[in-house]
Design a protein around this nucleic acid. Structure first.
Lengths: 347, 347
DNA sequence: TTGAAAGCGCTAACAC
DNA sequence: GTGTTAGCGCTTTCAA
């Protein structure tokens, strides 16, 4: 129709196809296809010629067309809740980086907590994404069934469901909670508290369970509990209630760093007390700001790299072999000792 | 081959197509297609029957196939640099939210600063994305040409190129810089400084230019300048250098909030001085943490919602009408007065 | 209002 | 090694 393909300077808006390349290179379209699929079935010279022509024409494989044939889109949907926790921002970038290295891409899918993830699953399935990674969001049982129905591999990241129907990777929150209890005990703290994140999230439950159980095992009184979500404001308010109780704690474990920083501010700014002199604070995540000099938060680091690599490994393996049973993997946390936990003996 | 489509309970892995639906609904495949395209050319009853069958079968339109026909993917690529600034996390979520409301989706594309955005453009073009939104990343002239060549609409967000070859939306950084200078002047500050972000980013240059020009206009001495990127550590170190100078400033404008918070900590923690008593600090962005009680940073808010809506409006309009000339839009900032700028008279 | 048929740009047998 | 051909699952004339 148009002969723009022959013009030397690129002109706008000419969708150039493999057939165009084939014509200009004097080969068949399938040979072009082979060349771009890195097939061994193309001679060195042909390949070179094809690539040359392709470059001139500005040809790029059309992945939608390829996907239609191969039934693979090269897309991984990442569905995430509307968290403001920068931890998940880091995770997302890492996921994208790793996927790009494999020639795949991330389709983002944020869901408001109000709406269910069910519609999200349908939407991403329309794109025939190869897999689903769920970050900081719940996936209803129904949604999970639907994924299986669609033959869509799923991995939950830092959230899991009890049923074991779906793969998941998480920080070993129970052990981490125990380690925190033990650490606080070893540093001679006596009265423990916990500022809770979202009550029914698996992360929150496990962190608390490990903490409480280890405390019990050590013969300590059960921790005081306040709070109810993962926000800054939650930490700031909860800590005030905690410090006004008669059995005022001398060590507070916060369900995540943002909350811990809120607690820090509540104590210092609102209460005019000192950390760690008056009370020790420990967080969870180790987001970038936790190591800032104004904060220096002692916290349990989630090893993002290991977690992401595990999650992707499971997901990609399942894409190749959809029949595999769900897999569940825990990665250890890592205690980052900074300045918000008193390390010396009790005064 | 398999008759799983007729089983009442969903069994795994049966890719169900419009043809399946058609067969079960006793219509032709094109009628199914019309029904799902919300065409008026389908009778009420037929449509209902089709939807019913589709629901039973778990049919979902295959967007890759549709895209192959329509030459539209419903995908917007968001390419972003590897910033840790949570501001862009907020922007990204908002973009996704707005796009989802329009039935479109975000394909993420983070680029390391090391590699050029050129390859990014090629990658996303393989998916025949409908448009490109560039957040916090540069786009080389060559990459921009390539987009035009591909007929791929682009909007830059908070970065622009001088040539005017490409659409952009940004905060009105120059005016914002001026407003900050004026505000600091009005509150009786005398010796001004600027902690710089990335030297050659348009945001940084404009913010500084507005600041410096307004200061000059007011007859103030030119601001001292330190720093060179948008990080926390930059602010923390730069402020120390600044405060050790003989002409110690009493007001410091930081190129963004993260840097301002670094400066805050540098002053308070490292230098043992007070804000705003010893020096006033003002930031730019108004990220969530700036309003935290431990920080209470006075800052210039970027009106994310307006900016995102503008950017998307421009982008989507250009998708429908690719011939439109590049458009350039500035949205005003909004001064958030909190507690890091001294408001009273000089002591 | 519906159906038949021709593509969209690619992959993957299959033949040579 | 390379070409031919038949799809992949949709949209979209064109007829009826």
């Amino acid at each position: 129709m148009s002969d723009a393909v022959n013009s030397s300077q690129p002109s706008a808006k000419t969708p150039v196809t493999a057939r165009d390349v084939a014509r200009n290179a004097g080969v068949s379209q399938s040979t072009v296809s082979r060349a771009f699929a890195n097939s061994q079935l193309v001679s060195r010279e042909t390949r070179d010629r094809i690539f040359l022509v392709a470059e001139q024409l500005g040809y790029q494989v059309n992945i939608m067309a390829r996907g239609l044939s191969t039934q693979k889109s090269g897309l991984i949907a990442v569905v995430t809740g509307s968290t403001r926790n920068p931890f998940y921002w880091d995770v997302l970038r890492l996921v994208d980086e790793r996927l790009q290295a494999k020639g795949m891409h991330v389709m983002l899918m944020t869901v408001k907590e109000s709406e269910s993830t069910d519609s999200a699953v349908r939407k991403v399935h329309q794109y025939r994404v190869d897999g689903l990674l769920v970050l900081s969001a719940e996936l209803s049982s129904k949604a999970i069934d639907e994924c299986r129905e669609f033959g869509l591999p799923v991995v939950l990241f830092n959230r899991y469901v009890e049923t074991g129907k779906v793969s998941a990777v998480a920080c070993d929150n129970i052990v981490a909670g125990k380690d925190i209890a033990q650490f606080l005990y070893n540093t001679n703290h006596k009265r423990f508290a916990f500022i809770s994140g979202l009550e029914d999230s698996s992360t929150n439950k496990d962190r608390f369970q490990g903490y409480r159980d280890q405390l019990a095992k050590l013969g300590c009184p059960p921790p005081l509990v306040e709070g109810g979500d993962f926000t800054y404001e939650n930490g700031r308010q909860a800590v005030k209630r905690l410090m006004l109780r008669s059995e005022r704690p001398d060590a507070i474990f916060c369900a995540n760093d943002i909350t811990a920083i809120g607690a820090l501010d509540g104590i210092r700014v609102d209460l005019g007390m000192r950390v760690p002199e008056d009370v020790s604070i420990i967080g969870f995540d180790d987001i970038a700001m936790s190591s800032w000099s104004g904060i220096e938060l002692t916290t349990m680091r989630q090893q993002t790299t290991r977690m992401v690599d595990s999650a992707l490994e499971i997901l990609l393996r399942r894409i190749d072999a959809p029949e595999l049973k769900p897999e569940f993997r825990l990665e250890p946390g890592k205690l980052m000792i900074r300045r918000t936990v008193r390390l010396d003996r009790q005064p």
